[in-house]
Design a protein around this nucleic acid. Structure first.
Lengths: 191, 191
DNA sequence: TCTGGTATTGACTATTTAGTCATTTTCATT
DNA sequence: AATGAAAATGACTAAATAGTCAATACCAGA
């Protein structure tokens, strides 16, 4: 029973992910989401009292997965540059392998349907990222820029490279990923 | 008469800009837009046959303004680095001074309501940008990266810095703008 | 097999929506 | 002042919407 519950909830989130990205928030009806998920219209509202709750839960879900992928094996790297490189590859590879989630985040990160509460909760998942920037500033590996600026530039650049790879389809994706890292590292590291 | 026509059209675009950014595309009714613009509901459809036509016209309008600001006085600069710096300042300052348009573009650039036709037409306004990257590659000022990658990184970084300035509100905005340029220039220039 | 509580269903509704169109207003020209 | 064509109006409609709720299905434990 518990299993089935999770199944339906996951199916609803998956359906919502696909449809919201394809057709937008108000462009997708709750009926369409239920149908795509293979459940009754009422079932959606058992799990998510309102449509807004649904998209906020979905946003949190996706951002959490992203944050987990992002941090994987980073602390195991020897040098600071290797830590950043690991994180870069985690980010870009996740984006390529999870296109739908990647596009969803891009489309809804500044959307009015995501509440400031959701944004705050999501933020907490990313403190380790901020800490890593602080570490680089403290040990002199990074140029003397505000940490929020560094993290933003790093994260947004990874999105830019994923977009570039998905849209321009370069022959050598790995080259593109490494090129991207070189640009960012040259940009933020201390000369 | 001609004057008034343009007034109403402009009022509709302005109202749509504000409301779409605040409440999303389907979250904003055509009635709300008409009301905000101070015209009758029918008038909107005289100028824009459908709601989609309206948002596409608006998107084109804003992107065109951005492209014009972006290129201003760039060719008058002496060195290549100065050309890029001029463009960087044009971009970031436009974003700060035109927050509403800046946010609108960010929110709708990858939205399903913007047709691929609109995207293509908008693209044409930005060939000079691509050409500038080619120029930098040809004269050895830029690192050996694909030009599309360079333009994307440059443009998206400018967006990141505007976001950073609007959201983090650093004491010294000009320092932040110049810092941003340093990061990007270090990133894409040849070492 | 029976019990009782939980999960699921889908018909239903009150509201909202994009777009229409017959009518009225505006105003340059005569 | 008279004309007429273009612009503006807003009441209207057919369709779609988020969310409800009474009825049903399910299933673990006794």
């Amino acid at each position: 029973m518990k299993k089935q519950v999770e199944d339906k909830k996951a199916a609803l989130l998956e359906a919502a992910l696909k449809l919201f990205t394809e057709r937008g928030f108000h462009g997708t009806s709750t009926a369409q989401i239920s149908k795509e998920a293979g459940v009754a219209t009422g079932t959606l509202f058992n799990y998510f009292p309102t449509k807004e709750d649904l998209i906020n839960a979905l946003y949190f879900d996706v951002k959490e997965k992203l944050s987990r992928s992002m941090g994987k094996d980073v602390q195991a790297q020897k040098t600071y540059k290797e830590k950043l490189r690991k994180m870069w590859y985690n980010l870009v590879e996740w984006g390529i392998e999870n296109q739908d989630q990647f596009l969803f985040v891009g489309q809804f990160c500044s959307s009015p349907y995501i509440t400031s509460h959701t944004r705050e909760v999501v933020m907490e998942e990313y403190v380790f990222f901020h800490d890593l920037a602080m570490e680089g500033l403290a040990n002199g590996e990074l140029g003397d820029y505000p940490p929020e600026m560094i993290t933003s530039m790093f994260y947004q650049s990874s999105r830019t490279i994923v977009d570039y790879i998905l849209y321009s389809e370069p022959q050598d994706k790995n080259k593109a990923i490494e090129d991207g890292f070189q640009v960012v590292w040259q940009g933020v590291s201390k000369k």
